[in-house]
């Protein structure tokens, strides 16, 4: 019996493991802007890149994701990065100011690199510029084996091109505007029901002195139902904590950017 139970648990566990593996684009548990699957950076390099990108995200809400992978799973590198950026939601919602840089190291096949720009970044880093960043800053360094240098130079260019365009302050003022008014309608309905039930009660009370409370639980229950439905929105918090990263913001990607190989 015990063995059976154990087997069942293992079967359940492994099935969830398999399903987690099949969708490589689903959001990771820990949200951060440097993901080194291919292991091309040292610990210190990762820390430096993270420091720079998380700081930039905090100041401007613009998010740059660095993602390295040994295997593109059959996707074209640009397609891979677009899907990644879209489903992780790099950049903030509404501004769509995210940049995704995906790197596949050179092995038996040529190395692949792409810079994918969110909709909001497209005017600031047009495809031709993204291509020049790849050709001039990244590929020459990659050819010499200096992966970190290539990335560092490229993100410096991206930062200088997008700096000043988005700020965390005007991002916050934007999301405040778009808060929903759906809850107000619900409250109005409950108010009307309450009024009607009170009218009913007072009429009933006119003829019969005994206080009738039979209508009360209905609207009270409804009210409790309604109060639970109003919740805040789930955007990343850009203002909290120094050096910490508040999470991805829900930006969208439309396929803009450029790719290269060496």
């Amino acid at each position: 019996m015990k063995k059976l139970l154990l087997l069942l648990i293992i079967a359940l566990f492994s099935s969830t493991l398999v399903s987690a593996q099949t969708d490589i684009f689903s959001k990771p548990a820990k949200e951060q802007l440097v993901v080194d699957q291919a292991g091309v950076f040292t610990e210190q390099e990762i820390a430096q890149l993270k420091e720079k990108l998380h700081q930039f995200s905090k100041e401007t809400s613009t998010q740059i994701l660095i993602y390295t992978t040994p295997d593109l799973q059959g996707y074209d590198v640009g397609d891979f990065a677009q899907r990644l950026g879209q489903s992780w939601g790099i950049g903030s919602k509404g501004f769509d100011n995210g940049i995704v840089i995906v790197f596949k190291p050179k092995n038996s096949e040529p190395g692949r690199i792409t810079i994918q720009t969110g909709y909001g970044i497209e005017p600031l880093i047009p495809d031709a510029i993204a291509n020049q960043i790849i050709e001039n800053e990244m590929i020459p360094e990659f050819k010499n084996g200096n992966i970190y240098n290539g990335f560092n130079k490229a993100i410096d260019v991206c930062i200088s091109l997008t700096k000043g365009e988005f700020t965390a302050a005007n991002y916050e003022s934007q999301i405040k505007k778009s808060e929903n008014i759906g809850g107000a309608v619900f409250i109005l309905i409950i108010f009307l029901i309450t009024v009607f039930s009170l009218i009913g009660k007072s009429r009933a009370g006119r003829h019969y002195n005994a206080g009738t409370k039979s209508n009360l639980p209905l609207w009270a229950a409804l009210f409790m139902l309604g109060s639970g439905s109003h919740r805040g929105s789930g955007f990343g918090d850009f203002s909290s904590g120094s050096g910490s990263f508040g999470g991805f913001g829900g930006g969208s990607f439309g396929g803009g950017g450029a790719s290269g190989s060496w």
């Binding site: 495809d127 020049q132 396929g255 803009g256 450029a258």
Partner: peptide, 13 residues
């Protein structure tokens, strides 16, 4: 580069 980016955009949209 622009043409390549545009073909990607077509696929995405």
């Amino acid at each position: 580069a622009q043409l390549e980016g545009t073909e990607n955009r077509i696929t995405v949209e």
